Every structure is written in structure tokens, then in C-alpha cells.
Amino acid sequence: MRERQASRNARRTREFEAFVAGAGGRLLHTATLLTAEPRNGNPRARRLLTASLAHTYAVWDRLHGEDPYDRTRQYLAVRFARGAWHQYGGPVRVLLRGRAVPDGVLRNLTPQERLILVLRMYEGVAEEQAAALLGLPAERVRVICARAMATLLHPPREGAAPIAKVVPS
């Protein structure tokens, strides 16, 4: 009995390690895009991914043919959305620009805009799937994605540099 359990655990660990070896890099990039951290300094993204992979490992035997990448991505997105709720003090959909501005490429987007844009454009998740995952109407996901794309294509202008004050001699 113990040998069978040990063999099953070893197989499970090998399968999971193979999954992480194949999908870990892409999932880390997804988490980095969500947190809008720079690629070489992304502690929040790494914590988010670690928690998501731990969850996937915990339910590995219950996947029953389900795609582990899809499950991990879903948990990653939901965990990011919950974290944004707690970090910014309210639902992701009412977050305002200008709070704790991140450094990454997607820094001008709200957490909700980043989440929807990453799911739709980088991960290729269908609009209806993203809407169901986030508990939003599909039309709302479409509007947020369009607004995020517009912000990326036409970023807000930075304030003008201050003019040096000329002091008469």
C-alpha cells in the first residue's frame, strides 16, 4: 500500500514538474504583465505565480483531463483580481488611475484593464470566457479591452518639464 502511494506521488510530482518546465515561463510572463513590474524585478509576479502553481499542484489529481495551464491561468487571474481588490480598497472595476503607479509597459492601465488586456490579447482567452471568469458582462469586457488598447496606443502625455527660473543679475 505504501509503495503504491509513494509511486503515485512520484508520478504526480514528475508530471507536475514537466508541466512547470513547459508552462512556467509563459505563466511568469503573464503574471509579470498583470503586476506591471519590470521583467528582471518582479517579486509580486513571482509570488502570484507561486501561489497559483501551489494551488494547481494541490488539485493535480482532481483535474481529470482538464488543462492544467488553463486552470493555473484562471487561478492566477482570480488571485490577481482579489489582490487588486484588497490592495486598492475596493472592487477592481472602480479602481482609479494614479494609485501606486507600477513601472512596466502596462503602467498606464488600471489593474482591471491590465487583467482583461492580458487575458484577451496575450493569453487569447475568448471575450465570453474572460467575462465569465471575472463575473462581468461580455460587453463590459469588450469596452474595457478597447479602452485599454486605446490607452496603450495613445498614452497620456507626461507633464512638461519645469522651466528654469531666470534670476536677473
Rank of each mutant, 00 (worst) to 15 (best):
V118R: 02
G41F: 15
V101P: 02
P38M: 05
L76T: 06
Y88T: 00
F80Y: 15
R142Y: 05
Y122F: 15
P162K: 08
E15V: 03
A138S: 12
R11A: 14
Y122G: 00
V166A: 11
T72F: 03
L53W: 03
L119Q: 11
C145T: 11
V125F: 10
T30M: 12
F80I: 00
A160V: 11
R14G: 01
T72A: 13
R44Y: 13
D70T: 14
R4Q: 15
G89F: 05
Q87R: 15
V59F: 05
L96D: 09
R14V: 09
T32R: 10
Q5F: 14
F19G: 04
G98W: 07
E3Q: 13
Q74Y: 10
D67K: 02
A100K: 12
L133F: 02
E37G: 03
Y75A: 03
A54F: 05
E158N: 09
T56C: 07
D67A: 07
Q112I: 15
L96G: 09
Q87A: 13
L133W: 10
G98C: 05
V92K: 00
T56Q: 03
R71V: 15
L115K: 04
D70M: 09
V94A: 07
R99E: 13
T32A: 07
R4F: 14
W85P: 00
G83L: 02
L133S: 04
Q129M: 09
